[in-house]
Design a protein around this nucleic acid. Structure first.
Length: 559
RNA sequence: UGGGCCGUCGACAAGCGGUAAGUCACAUGGUUUUGGUCCAUGCAUUCAGGGGUUCGAAUCCUCUCGGCCCAACCA
């Protein structure tokens, strides 16, 4: 990340620049990412993480990771570990500052007592239904709770009893005393604590009252000395309340700034939809390479750098937006083009016999490992009489723009020879079974000593030297750009792409790839970028296609 | 509908009163032993729309239109 181009200006940086100029926060910048451990992280979270992290880093500030674990009924340790793992991989560094909201439960409780003592909070004993009914609506004011004027003494006693487990779930709540007629619904005596006789993944059964987001979040930020609390747009309406609590308490008040969350087209990003895909087995787990989860993208072959660059390109603003998936693809191609070693691999093999090549001869030919990186060197690739080429690289009756192999045509076999197709052998079904070709010995290495040109260069593999592999091809998960905007009566599940996963079983690879370990990334020349899946073994290699190469031929065919 | 926020190229997004950056996508041409990469060129006379202020407006004022968020004891 150190070498990434300097960050773009955005409205948050403008605010911070101004704050620094005015000497606010003693010139410090301190941000945080506060996930609730109730699900897995996806590319949208990567934006929140990276916006907070890179701003802290660029201003020589600090970045905290804090689990907002205030609701034990939804949270689990399993998620904590997965989230930590994903953020580490992404490259955001919280150093030693890993916190939990539950670490502050005692302090939050004390603050609540303080608020009761200044008459700004009370115990409400209405039912949830009554509270809802009395909150009013968006256009009509709410009405005060009948319990709103309990004495401070009574509130204090009740609150302590709540804490001590003397009441059942739902029988009482602690509420802030603000204004039931506020046009901002969140200011109509918001709830601060509810009773939940549920054990918490960290505090066990120590507590049976748990703080609610609006009460807890500002306190968490304040306690940690956060200066800029960067969050998504839907919290805009919460900001007055965030401020109100901290002002009443007279404690450090971070500045909450909201920005638009990331949306990607042709996929789903909501917790609910992702969960449905996983639980109903539309995909194979949270790390399915088709999912936009961080674990899925990782398994798909994305690098942290690619995601960082992607987020940087996306920018930070307040307008709702849906980013084109092509930008994500561009981001990973950009990284892999520079770094991925090239290799020849045949996904859909077609046998080629070089009829004028000596029967038992094998030549070791030099192949460049990465044309973008001379230091990657070269390797030897065996060439022999029987080869495989890609089925798609031959057409018996080629259209005008098809440059590849056809009857009577000459092409270059990369790093090898000029090859001419003389005969097409078919099976009883009329299916092309193999090609009989001749080679030009003078063109060794793929050079053209007489200046003769060919229009195509194909990849190939020596039949006896190649190894078998399984290759998994991925396509977009959803066939429509935006699942939040569907035809009447349809759900996103009606638009799941049935061809989002294609498993190829008879693929051929260069032999040295048997040793590649899970996570190894390379380019299959002319096909795309691929990586070794965790399912892979030396006996049965499994590769995932991360992304295809840009393919102008495929685009022409579509027209 | 009360309140809050937002509307600049197909998708993002700079711009902060001095005459529309950049990226992706797309198109065309060049280079090329990957139909990849790379290079070059093109792609908003106009900023949701109207009115106003100004020598000058995407930027300021105003009205209209459109979108999103808020009525969980979720975060």
């Amino acid at each position: 990340m150190e070498n990434s181009e300097k960050s773009r200006s955005n409205f948050i940086r403008d605010i911070i620049d101004k704050d620094l100029l005015e000497g606010k926060n003693n010139g410090k910048v301190h941000t945080r990412f506060p996930p609730e451990p109730n699900g897995h992280l996806h590319i949208g979270h990567a934006k929140a993480i990276l916006v907070n992290y890179t701003i802290a880093k660029d201003y020589n500030g600090k970045f905290n990771l804090r689990f907002d674990d205030t609701n034990p009924v939804k949270e689990d340790e399993e998620y904590v570990n997965a989230i930590i793992n994903d953020i580490k991989w992404l490259g955001a560094d919280w150093e030693e500052r890993l916190f939990y909201a539950s670490d502050y439960f005692e302090q939050m409780y004390e603050y609540a007592i303080q608020l009761i003592k200044i008459g700004k909070a009370f115990i409400d004993s209405q039912s949830a239904e009554e509270i809802r009914a009395n909150r009013g609506t968006i256009t009509s004011p709410g009405i005060d709770s009948p319990f709103r004027n309990r004495s401070i003494e009574e509130n204090l006693n009740l609150f302590e009893s709540m804490k001590n487990g003397e009441f059942e779930d739902g029988s009482h709540v602690l509420r802030a005393k603000i204004d039931m007629t506020s046009p901002n619904m969140l200011m109509r005596d918001p709830l601060m604590y509810r009773i939940r006789h549920t054990s918490h993944h960290r505090t066990g059964d120590k507590w049976c009252i748990y703080p609610i987001y609006d009460w807890a979040h500002g306190l968490e930020d304040s306690i940690e000395g956060i200066t800029h609390s960067l969050c998504s747009l839907e919290f805009q309406a919460h900001r007055p309340l965030y401020d109100w609590f901290l002002i009443q308490l007279g404690i450090h008040k971070p500045q909450q700034i909201e920005f638009a969350r990331l949306n990607l087209n042709y996929t789903v990003m909501s917790k609910r939809k992702l969960l449905e895909l996983v639980e109903e087995n539309y995909v194979n787990g949270w790390d399915d390479p088709r999912l936009p989860t961080l674990s899925g993208l990782r398994r798909r072959g994305f690098t942290p750098e690619a995601i960082q660059n992607f987020i940087e390109k996306v920018g930070v603003a307040k307008a709702h937006s849906i980013i084109d998936y092509a930008l994500l693809e561009h981001s990973i191609r950009e990284v892999l083009n520079k770094t991925a070693p090239r290799v020849m691999s045949v996904l859909n093999p077609l046998k080629v016999v070089i009829t004028n090549y000596p029967d038992d001869q094998v030549e070791e030919l030099d192949a460049v490992n990465n044309p973008e990186d001379p230091s990657a060197g070269t390797r030897k690739v065996p060439f022999s009489k029987e080869l495989y080429i890609e089925r798609e690289d031959f057409m018996e009756d080629p259209p005008k723009k098809f440059f590849r192999l056809g009857p009577g045509r000459e092409v270059r076999f990369r790093y090898a020879y000029f090859i001419t197709c003389n005969e097409v052998i078919k099976d009883s079904n009329g299916e092309v079974k193999e090609l009989h070709c001749t080679y030009d010995p003078a063109s060794k290495g793929g050079k053209s000593p007489d200046g003769r040109k060919v229009k195509a260069t194909l990849h190939w593999l020596s039949a006896e030297h190649a190894i078998d592999a399984e290759v998994r091809l991925y396509d977009r998960l959803i066939t429509v750009p935006d699942t939040n905007n569907l035809e009447e009566g349809k759900t996103f599940k009606d638009y799941i792409n049935p061809d989002s996963l294609t498993i190829l079983h008879n693929c051929k690879l260069e032999a040295h790839l048997a040793k590649a370990e899970a996570g190894f990334r390379c380019q299959f020349e002319r096909l795309g970028y691929f990586c070794v899946d965790p399912d892979s073994t030396p006996q049965k290699p499994v590769f995932n296609r991360t992304v295809t190469l840009r393919d102008t031929w495929a685009r022409m065919q579509k027209k």
